[in-house]
Amino acid sequence: MRPSDAHAQDASGGAEPALESTSPVEWVIAGLSGLLLAATLSYMVIFAFSEPRTPPAVTLSVATVTTTPGGYLVVFRADNAGGAAAAGVQVSGELREGGTVVETSQATIDYLPQRSERRGGLFFTRNPEGLDLNLRAEGYSEP
């Protein structure tokens, strides 16, 4: 079955297939889809104009501290309240005892989208409970 050549002026002589028209149910689905599409578009356009492209604003907070076979794990939560996504966010944690740093750990968050949160963990050999734990975002690159 070789379809007719695209360039030949071919008057379709064969039996015409029955043309289907759209049933009411399909129109309802189509209407819903159209609404959803319009909503998505408006959301994106409104977002583009209302949201100032403020730089990433990362805040870190400790979610949990647990023990691991090698020591202790501090799970942190990184919130980006800014209007732009950050890539390769470097997170460092310092344990201080009376003002002197006794241990540091680092982690990298690959992507931290705007107005979103991601989690990560820092391993320590000393127990963070009872010591001063200081979390800091050190830097990022633009995705």
Partner: peptide, 19 residues
């Protein structure tokens, strides 16, 4: 999706397919 009669049926199909 199907042989269509009118352009509006094609539009309906396009929207359904996107959903």
């Amino acid at each position: 999706m199907r042989p269509t009669a009118h352009l509006r049926d094609d539009l309906a199909d396009a929207l359904v397919v996107m959903l």
